[in-house]
Nucleic acid binder design. Structure first.
Lengths: 194, 194, 194, 194
DNA sequence: CATGAATGAGAGTTCATTCAT
DNA sequence: GATGAATGAACTCTCATTCAT
């Protein structure tokens, strides 16, 4: 597959991404993607064999651009709580975004497929996020910003709350205020009286 | 609709419930339900017009049998923390159950339909659970079992963690130990050193 | 499947039979049969799942009407050679018939499918024909009409010649005269100077 | 077409031949051949316009290497029956060979195409084989090895039996023993008590 | 009420064939 | 000559939904 093909593949992935954001995973057909890309039926099959295949690659793309929240935007002299608050703020923004969001598609995908554990991208992302938060909290504890007994469990708790907010936002709806309250609650749990 | 019809409707709902537990929501077709019920295609349409309609009624049935956790099994002299722990234990059992569980179907249903807020059963259940937990915590605070600043926020936090565990269990998988750790963490947050 | 359905199934089989006679086996699609029957796409699938399935049933139908050559048309006082000649004449008629003939479809079908031996209808038909011819020859030998060393081998030889003529008729073409010559040759081999 | 092109054409034909042996005629697509040859789609079309075209040329190639059975392997002082038996033995070997054999493809090809008589390679091969066998039998009769009334008809009979065995081998299956019995039967018909 | 045959829309998938490079 | 991306036609198959009985 030459230079050009790669560009097209990329184009398909980006277009498909929008489709998945719009319609979730299960509702998307190969035809949908074909039409969104304005290419021929057969043309798509030249690059991908199924919506699963496409979605998985979209997810990989996404993952490649993730955890930039931690690496970007961070100044030299940022404190642990600065970084954590930045992260939570970003998460809030994400989870309140109505569309333009792969959350639903991702959940639907991982519902339907029995992904073997080790290949589960979602798990990798989750675990990686936990690890980063854990490190962050440890750092915060060391320089007296935070207090916590078991940083690993605390980090996981933060992630579970975020997951809970995420799924709730998609199924029930959550107000911006409710999210704020919950994020405060997390910070208070770390001994910060924001 | 006569007595007999009601019985049949009930029969369909109960059978469909099993199908939804088995296959989620999106994967279930009218055909699936027809076959599971062993009735005629046309017969099903006499009672329900779509899987959405059926699922919604299944959900209503479910709701009718819910929050029994709080009402059942509770002895006169149970403390607030006894009841809360019972509740959490029950939730753990639910979320670790692989099949026989409407979680996935429910999420899928609320992903796909743009349910108007006021009709959203899930929201009602969530809010009702929050309220009960809140009351429970308040009671616990009053008699010195718990300590907490804002009982409403704390109650919601518990629910979000539970939701987070639930969705994670279905997409990534959670170990029994991890669930335990998180439940402990919640209790510790209430000032209990279990 | 009720009375009516059986009639429709029969109708489909008879229509499909004509299609197979016209186009062989491999060239026939479900669409072809749908169109020939003038029913809906889904309608056909109600009865049959594939062209293989249909063809196999067509073949069974055909088999049910076979070896009537021996049972019909035979008068009380017919000699063995009378019957044999009648049989060969019938075979000649069959193999020279340009269309209206399932030969090609049958060969194509048995080329493409790896039919397990015991299920192979063609084999059953072949073996049954050999047996009948064998019996016939034995009868002829007993009353002095025929002479032959090994009736089984002779019977098989007749069948192989007929198969050879059949396949040749479909691929190269055979003239009526050539068939006659070969049938004579067979009879001469049995000691008849027709 | 230059030297190089001819080589490539030859290469394609040889590769395609293997594909036809493997899959018959009808199951072979241009894509199959492209892939087997590991050339480009467009590249194949520079040389051949369809699988029919390719197969026909494969068949011509084959024909060029045929009747070597008679020309090769034959010593000066071989008797007619030596040669005939050699031929039959070779035929047996061919028809019992499971794969590596163009029989099925050839039949399928001549089923599907309405080949004009004069172009029918198969007919040429058949007629040529008949002629050679006829000559052989005549020679055998002259020097007292064989006896037969009409050598032409006898020669054709041999060919039809062989065709019958061939097609039967591909559709029903034939045991080595059965083939032997039939070949013996042919020789006995020529007055040889092998 | 209940049945289940029938319809037809729509998704998936594969290839022959073309054509710009 | 050669490539291989691209197209679009053709098939397969499955269901939601209707309707005569």
């Amino acid at each position: 597959m030459g230079e050009k093909s790669l560009q097209k593949k990329q184009y398909i992935l980006e277009t498909a991404r929008k489709v998945f954001m719009e319609k979730g995973f299960k509702n998307v057909t190969m035809k949908d993607i074909v039409e969104a890309c304005d290419i021929s039926r057969g043309g798509l099959y030249l690059y991908f064999g199924s919506t699963e295949e496409i979605f998985l690659e979209v997810l990989k793309m996404e993952a490649g651009e993730a955890d930039d929240v931690f690496s970007d935007n961070i100044t030299e002299d940022a404190t642990a709580s600065d970084i954590l608050m930045l992260f939570l703020k970003e998460q809030k923004r994400e989870l309140l975004r109505k569309k333009n969001n792969l959350t639903v598609a991702t959940y639907e995908y991982f519902f339907s497929t029995d992904v073997p554990k080790k290949d589960n991208i979602l798990k990798k992302q989750f675990d990686s996020a936990v690890k980063i938060i854990e490190k962050l909290i440890e750092a915060g504890v060391e320089n007296g910003e935070f207090e916590c007994e078991d940083c690993r469990v605390t980090a996981r708790n933060i992630m579970f709350v975020l997951e809970g907010l995420k799924i709730t936002a998609r199924t029930i709806g959550v107000s911006s205020d409710t999210v704020d309250e919950e994020l405060m609650y997390i910070l208070q749990g770390l001994g910060i009286d924001d």
